[in-house]
């Protein structure tokens, strides 16, 4: 992959919004899904996202995601899907109080790859839930946490 261009944004707190952004506030396209974020198991989460079951996949690479995270407050997770027609990527941290950590809709033209930092309460399996061509796939990796980050 050759990267020719970049865009870096640093967004401050909401308090300064009125003075900075004025009328410039389009709503994000995705509507927050309380059922999925309230679900307690991978099966429930996939169902709440609209899936009817899922298949395991090896077509996910984890980039620089660590095997052992010293600081559970900010564990950098990198997920890249090689599944054709990837439409969304969700991150499920099994042993967190709310296992669904994030969900990303990936439109055509955007690489099916995200990097984000998460809190992890303890050592846990982390699932990448990929929706590709209308079907759901899951890849799993264990991340060991030596100092939990939800407390």
């Amino acid at each position: 992959m050759t990267l020719h261009r970049r865009a870096i944004l640093k967004l401050g707190g909401a308090a300064t919004l009125a003075s900075v952004a004025g009328g410039l506030r389009p709503r994000p396209a995705a509507a927050w899904n309380p059922a999925a974020f309230g679900a307690k198991s991978l099966d429930e989460i996939v169902a709440a996202l609209g899936g009817t079951g899922y298949a395991p996949t090896k077509a996910v690479s984890w980039g620089a995601t660590p095997d052992i995270a010293e600081n559970g407050a900010a564990v950098q997770v990198s997920i890249t899907s090689a599944l054709p027609r990837t439409q969304s990527i969700a991150v499920v941290i099994e042993k967190n109080p709310g296992p669904l950590a994030a969900q990303f809709d990936v439109p055509p033209g955007t690489d099916p790859a995200i990097v984000t930092r998460f809190k992890m309460a303890q050592t846990s399996n982390v699932h990448a839930v990929i929706k590709a061509d209308g079907k759901y796939f899951v890849a799993t990796r264990e991340i060991r946490v030596t100092f939990g980050g939800c407390g």
Partner: peptide, 20 residues
């Protein structure tokens, strides 16, 4: 739109996101 995300409270403080 080039990326739309839904986040829960497990995204770390001062969130970081990278995509292409």
């Amino acid at each position: 739109p080039v990326l739309s995300a839904q986040w829960g409270p497990a995204v770390s403080k001062n969130p970081f996101l990278q995509f292409t």
